[in-house]
Amino acid sequence: MSVSTETVKVVVVDDQTLFRSGLALLLGEDSRIQVVGQAGNGLAAIDLISSLKPDVILMDVKMPELDGIEATRRIVAANPDVKVLILTTFDTESSILHALQAGASGYVLKDSRADAIVSSILAVMAGERVMASSVAARVLDMLTGTSTRNEFYDGLTPREIEVLQLLASGMANKQIAYKLRISEKTVRNHVSNMYEKLHIFDRAQAVLYAVRKGLIDL
């Protein structure tokens, strides 16, 4: 279809009713967009597709019953002409990576202006992939093989990443040592090396880094 002469049919999927309804109203003010439906989870979104035949789905990530990533995977597999834009609160590399691997055409942040979201919708309808941040660019580097896992995690070794994940989840050094079957001194060495590479100084900063990289969920 030509997005310049026809309205784009959109379904908004988010488990937060106020956000979903408010976004639908804002998008509906643009003559190029027609919000044809809303859903509160991934399963409901899948059920709507056959009857509403949307062009674009704005999809939240964390929802009950079926999350946005798995819903995107199923929708794109069964309906290759439907474009999915992931809605995210935090632009963690991990969530964006999983979304793109599931077949999403890109993502928009929930605090984006309505006109920016409209532009993103029109862009994916024109066959573009919407990537709006340096974080997304790094994820695309990983997908195309131009960035290694080591670079993605700022030079951390696989073992240091493992220690970071356990540390950020609340484990003490002794617990980490027991779980990984290494000495507590070795754990301390890994933590020290990790702090130096990441230029951080305490566990609170380690937790923030782990969340940003998608290693843990809060």
Rank of each mutant, 00 (worst) to 15 (best):
S169K: 09
K174I: 14
E93F: 03
D81I: 01
T92R: 06
K179D: 10
P158V: 15
D202L: 07
R212H: 07
N150T: 15
V211P: 00
L143F: 07
S112Y: 11
E128S: 10
Y107S: 06
R203E: 12
N79Y: 11
A177V: 09
A114S: 13
F152K: 13
T72W: 01
Y153H: 14
T157V: 08
F90G: 05
S133T: 15
Q205W: 00
N193I: 03
K174G: 06
V191C: 05
I75W: 05
V82A: 07
G155C: 11
A78C: 04
T146V: 11
V207D: 03
Q165I: 06
R203P: 00
D111S: 05
D202Q: 07
R74S: 07
T186R: 09
D81L: 02
L122Q: 13
E93I: 08
S112I: 04
V108T: 06
L167R: 08
T92Q: 10
A172H: 08
M125S: 13
Y153A: 04
V130W: 02
A168W: 01
T88L: 08
E93L: 09
A71G: 03
N150S: 12
T92A: 09
A168R: 02
V118K: 07
T89W: 03
L87I: 12
F201N: 09
M142F: 09
T92Y: 01
H199Q: 08
A137W: 00
I182S: 10
A172L: 12
N193K: 09
L87P: 01
D91G: 01
L143D: 14
Q165N: 10
E151C: 01
K185R: 14
R138K: 13
R188T: 11
A77W: 02
N193V: 02
V135K: 11
M194C: 08
S169R: 09
M131C: 12
L164G: 03
K83V: 06
T144M: 05
Y209S: 02
F201M: 05
R74N: 12
E128N: 10
S134G: 13
R212A: 14
L109P: 00
H98L: 14
F152G: 05
I182A: 11
S169G: 04
N150I: 13
S134I: 15
P158Q: 15
G170K: 09
N173L: 03
S119E: 15
K185H: 08
R73K: 14
S169F: 00
D115P: 00
L166P: 04
L140P: 00
M142Q: 08
Y178Q: 12
A168E: 05
K83Y: 07
D91E: 10
L180A: 05
L143E: 15
K185A: 15
A78S: 12
I182F: 06
S95V: 14
A78R: 13
G106R: 01
G155Q: 14
R138I: 06
